[in-house]
Design a binder for these strands. Sequence first.
RNA 1: GUGAGUGUAGCUCAGGGGUAGAGCGCCGGACUGUGGCUCCGGUGGUCGCGGGUUCAAAUCCCGUCACUCACCCCA
Length: 444
Amino acid sequence: MNTGPARGMRDFLPEDVRRRQYVIGVIADVYQKYGFEPLETPAVENLETLQGKYGEEGDRLIFKILKRGEGAETGQADLALRYDLTVPLARVIAEYRAKLPKFFKRYQVQPVWRADRPQKGRFREFYQCDVDAIGSTSMVVEAELLSAAADVFLALGFKEFQIVVNHRKLLNAVLDHAGVPAGLHGAALVIMDKADKIGVDGVRKELAEKGLPEGVAKTLREELASAPPPDLSAWMNQQASALNDEGKEGIEDLRQIVALCQSTSAGPHLALDRSLARGLSYYTGPIFEIRVADLAGSLGGGGRYDNLIGMFSGDNVPASGISLGLERILVVMGERDMFPAAVVSTPADVMVVQWFANRTNLYLSFATELRQAGLRVELYPDAPIEDGKKVGDKQFKYASARGIPFVVVIGADELAKGTVTVKNMKTGVQTAVPRAETVKWLNS
RNA sequence: GUGAGUGUAGCUCAGGGGUAGAGCGCCGGACUGUGGCUCCGGUGGUCGCGGGUUCAAAUCCCGUCACUCACCCCA
């Protein structure tokens, strides 16, 4: 019998859970500072809600659930595990628009599922930490989203990270300018997105395979090869003159984002990447990705999706958001040993030793006293067979292995004097303390 | 969906044709009313699973499953 979890899924032991809760706590705190409100949605959505939102590749990775009854035989599915948090949000907006504020800002930290093949930093069940702002087309939204994301990484102790931005409209304009037919925009975007991995020559080769003429590859290569200079504003002006109206809109949005971010935490980490494309098909405007050097994939990504909610409600509601990948953040933080010491250990503040097998109630009531005073107290469940004999072999070893900092003994001497002996497990120093002053002593 | 690598004790791994080894852990003991250090003793595995070659397979071959990594795509 295989006792491991299902492929791509993981069990989280206490130490893991503590780390996860720590990171989630930091993220939620930052998001709340920006006025985002919490939202939760079901793990399961109707299949039709999800299909057609993520692009061809994305749709393939949806975990489908067989229809009850006949589904077992026909293989027909009508439900699916949620694939991301953005599409369920769009559904919620379409459903509750009237009840929600004009500008709705929500954060959501929940697991999503993808029928992917696992590898480093990639799982079939993983948490996303999303922030989205609904109802405004202003680039202030983007600036705040990026600033919040930057604050999260700074609060977690990251110093070197990049917030990479680009714009779907700019990409479309560049593709048009290069002569890529509208039908091949998607394929060309995917190839451009890989530019950092396969290099400029690889891009040219793959474009040729798609049947795009040599001139296209040449133009795109030139676009890609031209890294934006430090003077972004001048560069953008120069670019804009060569592009159509759509491209100019993209440039203008990016210009605003860059300018607005200078007043936020995101500013120093912002970078333009003209080849950033992102796979999800629902993006319509600015797109972003958060990267660090030691991980191939991104730690987070997002963008503006002004038409997605309209796919549910009919009328378009502008929206933009960003999603942080909890698992990848944890992978990197684990490798770099970035967790505060307190997060990793101390399941209890103090352990009470059972010295006399026939005085368990004494130890229980003592533990109760300490707990009522606010301490986390563990009582060792087994008493020694003979009073006082071999007490420590098991009990002290257990406390030591669990990293419990203090152990309290009430043995014969202590009972006679009305004291307890407190042992500091780190230093090995033992102190006799009047029983009534134990809490005071431990807290000092 | 494609490709590569790895499956041997609870864990990390060695052994590359003659029926298994280390370190750590775990259990017991010495020393302390009592852990970490030291010392002594002990526990430990049909070598992922199935088949084949061979007098003989953990070892070679085929298949299968699992895990890991990379590609694709993504967080």
